[in-house]
Design a protein around this nucleic acid. Sequence first.
DNA 1: CTAGGATTTCGAGCGTGCTCGAAGTCAATC
DNA 2: GATTGACTTCGAGCACGCTCGAAATCCTAG
Lengths: 155, 155
Amino acid sequence: MLEVNPLPLPRVARSDSEAGLSIAEAARRTGVSVHTLRYYERAGLVVTPVGRTAGGRRRYQQLDLDWIVICTKLRATGMPIKAIRRYAQLVSTGRGNEQERLALLEAHRAEVTAKLAEIQENLRLIDHKIDVYRGRLAAGDADQLWAPGSPADVR
Amino acid sequence: MLEVNPLPLPRVARSDSEAGLSIAEAARRTGVSVHTLRYYERAGLVVTPVGRTAGGRRRYQQLDLDWIVICTKLRATGMPIKAIRRYAQLVSTGRGNEQERLALLEAHRAEVTAKLAEIQENLRLIDHKIDVYRGRLAAGDADQLWAPGSPADVR
DNA sequence: CTAGGATTTCGAGCGTGCTCGAAGTCAATC
DNA sequence: GATTGACTTCGAGCACGCTCGAAATCCTAG
């Protein structure tokens, strides 16, 4: 767990609405395209509204970036946009819905582990085929152990 | 290949073009919808043309089913339709391209293992969050260890 | 022979998650 | 002020992998 870091604010006036990173810089730091950043915002994935300058430009704070990175990680596990939106809603609503957040995460976790198991299981088929082909090639093309029209296994 | 049967040749018992399973039965046995079976065929995923009755109905043999199951397993690891088509082409072309088949499988294997690693890595975030929420709920809602506006960690 | 269910082809539609483009705004520099 | 480039909104477009539908045909039961 991270420690809360209460001190590091004295430098700049924090309520300055111009403070923060441009969308291009936020994209660079999170590894997400500016298009996708805006899409995520439109899709309701943000917990707290991204700040804006007087002129309407987005200004990203560290918290925004952190949340976006969390979103990308959830996406990387296959969590659908809708589920992330729901989770974001729960988080932004604040305390009192921890039970539902937990349920959402647990449900997704179950899907991920099931998917992992499925992939791993089917990866064995690929490994097996790779072994077969390596064996065939090592033995030389002409020397076929199996007849043509042979078991599906050798395909 | 099947023989055209314009003349009465009632003798050859098993090259009967009516033999084999209906598409509905093939769907039932492979766990793939009839729509998808036809789609896979259109998409060029089949190694050998599925047989037809005189009336034009598909008749699936065991080899066809086996291949379809292989396709579903490759799909389950995330192999794109295009790659499966390429692999099917290589297989149906026959001997002499084992090197390319192997390369295709190895390339896909690399993608799968990378994807697995990524999912597993990001699953840790989910596990961590689940732990946090379980801890929070076990400690009682009112007893928050962290302040509101706390680190992204507790979201 | 007729009814009706299964199957055919092939194009269209759908859900997901971006990705792009047009037209306009903002802001820094000349 | 004018130019230039980053940024804005919002709808459209795209890639993928199915999924569906319409109209015609096949085949079996009655």
